[in-house]
Design a protein around this nucleic acid. Structure first.
Length: 258
DNA sequence: AACGTCAATATGTCAA
DNA sequence: TTGACATATTGACGTT
């Protein structure tokens, strides 16, 4: 049994473990308030089975190294350097499956590196998986990370950002929809205001109607065709009242059909 | 140089 | 208390 143990009590530490081609990320710095420390234990049945390397970083510190037991200390890379990133290149094709090459240690830990750009193949696969399900189970995350040769944390971040983008687009679409609704309602409102104005002016310039109305409340004048028509219920209490009631019992229904 | 995109980070919320 | 997630922000990089 071979094991190495790292205990980190400082806050804001980040730790990346590479072991037999697989990588695991422990982003302590992501939860500085809650992470008072982190303990990591790696065990293996045979000593030869385990050749891990630990990358230990302290944000803000340009050079922070850790070497514990069999663990090889590495230089800290500041955010956006590619301790967490993989090559910007094209995957090879093995057995019909795309395999993205890992960056060499020299490239990975040498000089300042470029920001990670996912390859088209990586993005396409991530998009496919995102279409299948917007969130990943730990198992799916692990598998996908392995398939893409990315760290699970990177896959997780990609999905978080992807969900954020989706929500933003949806919100923008909803905003646009509401804006158009508002436009339509404003137009409708203006049209109705105008119609009301016309009805009012017709009322004031139609004394004959007023007399008629007062003399015979059972009749009303249609504003569209200016024809006198019988009130629907015989209890007409003025033209405007009749007009306001037209959605319920329209005395000018004959005009609507024209 | 200004701007847009996007991976990564920081921090808050919530459920288990 | 912890892990997962949402959200805001940062910073590298490509494009115009």
């Amino acid at each position: 049994m071979d094991a190495c143990k790292v205990d980190m009590c400082s806050t804001g530490l980040s730790l990346a473990l590479n072991y037999r081609g697989k990588s695991t990320d422990f982003s302590v710095g992501n939860r500085p308030r809650q992470s008072s420390g982190l303990e990591l234990e790696i065990s293996s049945s045979t000593a030869a089975d385990l050749e891990p390397s630990l990358t230990l970083g302290l944000p803000g510190d340009g050079r922070k190294a850790c070497s514990v037991g069999r663990v090889v200390g590495r230089q800290y890379s500041p955010p956006h350097s590619v301790i967490s990133s993989f090559p910007v290149g094209h995957p090879s094709n093995i057995n019909g499956e795309e395999v993205w090459p890992r960056i060499s240690d020299e490239e990975e830990y040498g000089t300042a590196r470029k920001k990670l750009r996912l390859t088209k193949g990586q993005s396409a696969l991530l998009e496919d998986k995102f279409r299948e399900h917007g969130t990943l189970t730990p198992k799916q995350k692990q598998d996908l990370a392995q398939q893409l040769n990315l760290r699970p944390r990177q896959v997780e971040v990609w999905f978080q950002n992807r969900r954020a983008r989706t929500k933003l687009k949806k919100t923008e679409a909803e905003l646009e929809f509401l804006r158009k609704c508002c436009e339509r309602l404003t137009e409708e409102n203006m049209r109705l205001q105008k119609e009301l104005q016309e009805l009012k002016s017709q009322k004031s310039s139609a004394p004959r109607y007023t007399q008629l109305h007062e003399a015979a409340p059972a009749f009303a004048m249609c504003p569209s065709c200016n024809k006198v028509t019988g009130a629907a219920d015989g209890s007409g209490s003025g033209f405007l009242a009749a007009a306001s009631k037209r959605h319920f019992s329209n005395p000018f229904a004959h005009c609507a059909a024209r």
